[in-house]
Design a protein around this nucleic acid. Structure first.
Lengths: 271, 271
DNA sequence: AGCAATACTTTACGCCATAAGGAGATAGTG
DNA sequence: CACTATCTCCTTATGGCGTAAAGTATTGCT
């Protein structure tokens, strides 16, 4: 099943994201029943559901239930589900560090930023679906960008070049996170371990497309090489707790990042 | 609104993707009413709806209606909506070229591959939501990968290094496409032109977060630089028909791709 | 003609987001 | 105290969704 985002009034949505005009700004006692919930509590409950049971299980009813109320009670705090998704996205990004010290140079700092971003996306894979649906422009997102700019300061880049490179890094981390998340989703969907699913892939393809290696010779060769290089029980190698397909995706992430950083280094040096 | 994919029996889904066991494989006359539809017709109608009205408008009822039948008629050809989404995704990727001639070198070939991929994602932006939800493993996806491997042949890379680099390029194009798609979505959601939306962003933020430049000094400086470099009516520059925010996102795509290709070139030369 | 297989329709169920309106709580004001 | 405005939260209802179940119509084989 697939979820996609409609959209509400962007003005209202932005005010919520930045918690502007919240009652806490003016805490004089006001008439009416005291609020039993809060935006933060709702967003927290929603993130909890999405993390634990996936986006498909996230309904206004479910969020209400988790908070001991009904779905309609949420509408006092949040205009609709679409805005709630924006808030969830932005709250998750706020988990990331505010700055990455570049005492050891910008390269480790940027690498740490990218790895934290990947880990965050993987803790909350549903985020990839929200963010690619439309821009959110909340404080969490800007915080993440600011942290990246801080890490990149050592490069001496500025202006257009810096803009392009930050954008590229953001794009790359998101794309790579999608690839890693897919390796998990595949297994989760079938109830089979990641590793089993991955290795049954080849036989599935052989059943259904017996001419695979004829149609895709280069891919076939590459796959053969991959299978040959697989060492299931390398003893105590770092990351052995991670199942193989994800280990592969993570290695790709790291390799691609290194290539990008090489390119950035050249750009920084070349003026 | 957000759409997300649940999942069906992967075996059935793969068979459909590869059109294995289709009645066309054994065209002997069989009892029963003649089929009035086909998988291809259904997928085509569904892609048409998603392209024109977005993922939110894609319902089994809508697809049936477009084909002059009911929603339930589709279930003869397709097990459910989830599998239909997989088929849509794979059909869209099949639009891409099968090979990219590298007569002028591998670099233009890979660049053409990446640009075609970006364009394809932008013709069908809903694809990004499907693909990041879970792996599909259809012929279209493999065809795209095979084309990339063909374009990369001139690098002389092989084995693990080649695997990592193809993965990185795929990740990058997908991530960048998400960023470009967002610039469009933002405008579409509000009914305002891309350009207007983009330039109202700053004032929106100022309303809602007056302390923006204090909280995000580096970002604020970068944004100021961007605004200063904006020349709305450069005469006849290539791509002037594209609205500004998208032009910016495309420029980021091109710059990031160039950095990646530099890195690949170094890897190819370095052995 | 009868049978079995296939395509398609109708109906119905249980979800979903959310509009509308009402009930209960809380404050300020006489 | 009552009165009223305001706010929270509930109940109910609407129109959509995916799809299960069961029925009908069409076709070819015997």
């Amino acid at each position: 099943m697939v979820v996609f985002a409609g959209q509400g009034d962007p003005r209202r949505s932005m005010a919520l994201l930045w918690r502007a005009g919240a009652p806490a700004d003016d805490p004089r006692p006001r008439p009416g029943r005291r609020p039993g919930l809060s935006v933060d509590a709702i967003v927290g409950a929603a993130v909890g559901i999405a993390d634990a049971q996936g986006m498909a299980a996230l309904s206004m009813r479910a969020v209400g239930e988790r908070l001991g109320t009904t779905a309609m009670a949420l509408y006092t705090y949040v205009p609709g589900k679409s805005e709630l998704l924006d808030l969830m996205y932005d709250q998750v990004l706020a988990e990331l560090a505010e700055r990455y010290p570049d005492g050891a140079g910008w390269r480790p700092a940027v690498t740490a930023w990218a790895e934290d971003g990947l880990a965050c996306y993987l803790r909350h894979p549903w985020v990839l679906q929200v963010s690619q649906a439309r821009p959110v422009l909340g404080p969490g997102e800007y915080r993440m960008l600011e942290a990246l700019l801080g890490a990149l300061r050592g490069t001496g880049l500025s202006g257009e070049r810096l803009r392009r490179i930050t954008g590229t890094l953001v794009n790359y981390v998101r794309g790579a996170a999608g690839a890693v998340a897919e390796t998990r989703q595949a297994a989760a969907a079938t109830g089979v371990s990641d590793e089993e699913w991955w290795f049954s892939r080849a036989s599935r393809l052989a059943e259904v497309a017996p001419d695979f290696t004829d149609r895709y010779p280069l891919l076939g060769a590459l796959e053969q090489d991959r299978a040959a290089s697989y060492r299931p029980d390398r003893p105590g190698a770092p990351g052995d707790d991670v199942p193989y397909p994800e280990r592969e995706a993570r290695a790709t992430f790291a390799a691609g990042l290194a290539v990008l950083l090489d390119g950035i280094e050249a750009a920084a040096a070349g003026g």
